[in-house]
Design a protein around this nucleic acid. Structure first.
Length: 616
DNA sequence: GTAGGGTTAG
């Protein structure tokens, strides 16, 4: 039989077979398949041919082998039919795989699992789970392979109630402590947001490998528990964990969140020393990490040295420039990008938001028009949000309002919020009132909206309305996500919350902040009392403003770093107007550069001015 | 024979 010419399977040890099949396949598929057309092939011929197709993801040849079986009226035994399912599934021909599976008179656990895995790997998680249920109904007992696959689909489909059911099945069959099943299981819990349960599964694993360790670290990272992710990494690393590029990629995500430049550099060094082969994903993480740590030049260095880049690499770099308010670099890099790679929807988002943050209104709008016209791009509400931001920033508030009403999405509070912010900057009462009304209806408990509306009235000198709105606000119960700021000194993270009493050097900080206050008031600083949401007298408001977390962090930085060094402070929310102004004065009076990273962007404050141009 | 963790944006 020419199909497997020069290759005798029985003589080959099992372990070597896979490679031999590959080699045999390369030698035989092209000529062998043609030669086989006339004669009857045996089990071994079919097996070798299918194996070759699986290895090479050769769908066309696979179909030929399958067709050959049909014409030869060869009824494949369970083993061979299963191999066909695997072949089709690996080649992403899921419907063909399913046809073979459905046509099988008998199925075993491998056939079912291969099909489930096919669905799972193509992201068709619901179908994967449905098939798993059919498998159980058919009386087939799942094994560790099945569970590892099904659990992946559980995290993918985010069906919380199925999670528990599958888990209890896993526990019943004693696969909970199987390495693959266990890491799938903990990953599933982590992705469902239940990190405690994920940790419990992880702690119960009798053995741990790189994947299970990475999975649990990634669990913390995905939930934004960056501190915990870093801690756990350090713990596992000193206990001898082996890292690979996925581990580092995950870890870098958390370091980006923390903006921990020192650790970031250290991990980068670790990666270089390991002499890992080139991975685009890992380099992308490095670009993002340096950009979120405020070191855009390092990002660019990584970017420039990449032998290959994906769209994500470009996007990460574009977002970096945008985050730092360097609009012209965004536009320039975008132009270079279009010569090399096809931009995707995230690219457009990056460019638009970059133009907005960098103040390049017309450029941003031009690019938007161009892309919409030329590329028939699929636009998300995020894209509209950016354009509304651009229009708002340039003062074209009515146009922005029209766009909100015309766009094919229901506007979200974030969309209205961005326009309301623009109304405050450009003091537009008429549009502001319309927008605010929408927002107050949608989220009556959000104090921020009342504050901005009252600020608009105040800027327009409409004091009666100011009081009306503030009274309205006090009637509603308001909850706010607690703001916190942090600064990293000597690899120690110092976190501050508003009016924090927990820091061990609280007294020193208080004394220093009062000293600063005197200095900057003398230089012309005026506190913005409208930033205080509570109904208290002005003196109390001033005191509360001084308790804001970003001021505490900046003060702590001023106390503990030598002159000339940039003070780098991070905040989990958008920075407050009064604190922004405070930082401006500090930068001027003390001649210190201050870098403030808020939820959306960097503010680099030098000599009393900020790179955001006071619009954020 | 079938299996687990990862990058930009939100």
């Amino acid at each position: 039989m020419l199909l497997t010419r020069g290759f005798r399977r029985a003589a080959v040890p099992r372990l070597a077979r896979r490679d031999m099949c590959g080699a045999a396949a390369r030698r035989t598929t092209a000529s062998g398949l043609v030669a086989v057309a006339g004669g009857g092939a045996s089990f071994h011929d079919y097996d070798a041919a299918i194996t070759a197709c699986v290895e090479r993801r050769a769908l066309k040849q696979g179909r030929q082998v399958h067709a050959h079986m049909v014409t030869a009226r060869y009824r494949p035994p369970v083993y061979l039919a299963t191999r066909l399912v695997i072949m089709y599934a690996r080649c992403c021909a899921l419907d063909d795989a399913r046809n073979v599976l459905d046509g099988m008179p008998e199925r075993n656990v491998v056939s079912w699992t291969a099909m489930i895995s096919g669905y799972s790997q193509s992201g068709r998680h619901v179908e994967a789970l449905q098939l798993f249920i059919r498998m159980l109904r058919a009386g087939c007992k799942p094994n560790e392979f099945t569970f590892a696959t099904v659990l992946t689909s559980c995290s993918g489909s985010q069906s919380i109630h199925q999670v528990k059911q599958v888990h209890s099945l896993v526990a019943k069959t004693n696969f909970e402590s199987h390495m693959f099943v266990g890491s799938s299981l903990l990953d599933m819990y982590a992705k469902a947001g239940n990190i405690q349960e994920a940790r419990r599964v992880f702690d119960m694993l009798p053995e741990r490998d790189t994947v299970s360790c990475t999975a649990i670290i990634s669990g913390y990272a995905q939930l934004g528990l960056d501190d915990e992710a870093l801690d756990l990494f350090r713990q596992l690393y000193s206990a001898g964990m082996q890292c690979n590029y996925v581990t580092f990629t995950t870890l870098l995500t958390s370091l980006s969140g923390l903006a921990s430049l020192d650790y970031g550099k250290q991990v980068h060094g670790l990666i270089l020393r390991k002499e890992l082969p080139f991975f685009v994903v890992l380099q992308n993480s490095l670009i993002d990490m340096y950009s979120k740590c405020g070191k855009l030049l390092y990002s660019r260095r990584v970017f420039d040295h990449m032998p290959q880049r994906s769209a994500i690499s470009w996007n990460a770099m574009l977002m970096g420039y945008g985050r730092h308010g360097i609009g012209h670099e965004v536009v320039q890099l975008f132009r270079t990008m279009t010569e090399e790679v096809k931009p995707d929807s995230v690219t457009l988002l990056a460019v638009l938001s970059g133009c907005s943050h960098g103040g390049l209104v017309d450029e941003g709008l031009d690019i938007f028009d161009l892309i919409v016209k030329e590329q028939n791009a699929v636009l998300s509400i995020g894209h509209y949000g950016c354009v509304i931001d651009l229009l708002g920033r340039s003062g074209r508030l009515q146009k922005a309002l029209d766009l909100i009403q015309d766009m094919p999405f229901e506007p979200t509070p974030a969309i209205w919020g961005s326009l309301l912010g623009a109304c405050r900057v450009h003091v537009n009462v008429s549009v502001g009132e319309v927008v605010a009304q929408k927002l107050l209806d949608m989220e009556p408990g959000n104090a921020g909206n009342y504050v901005i509306l009252s600020n608009i009235y105040a800027a327009a000198g409409m004091w009666k309305d100011v009081f009306r709105v503030r009274n309205l606000m006090l009637e509603k119960t308001v909850t706010k996500e607690p703001g916190q700021s942090w600064i990293i000194l000597d690899k120690v993270i110092h976190t501050f919350r508003s009016s924090d009493r927990l820091h061990p050097r609280k007294k020193d900080i208080d004394a220093k902040i009062k000293e600063i206050y005197v200095d900057i008031r003398a230089a012309g600083f005026v506190p913005d009392l409208s930033c205080v949401l509570h109904d208290v007298d002005d003196e109390q408001k001033e005191r509360m403003l001084l308790g804001h977390s970003e001021k505490l962090a900046v003060t702590f930085g001023l106390m503990n770093t030598p002159p000339g060094l940039t003070i780098r402070v991070m905040k989990n929310l958008r920075i407050c107007v009064d604190c922004h102004n405070f930082a401006k004065f500090v930068s001027k009076v003390y001649g210190r550069e201050i870098s403030l990273r808020d939820k959306n962007r960097f503010h680099l404050l030098t000599d009393g001015a900020c790179t955001c141009g006071d619009y954020w």
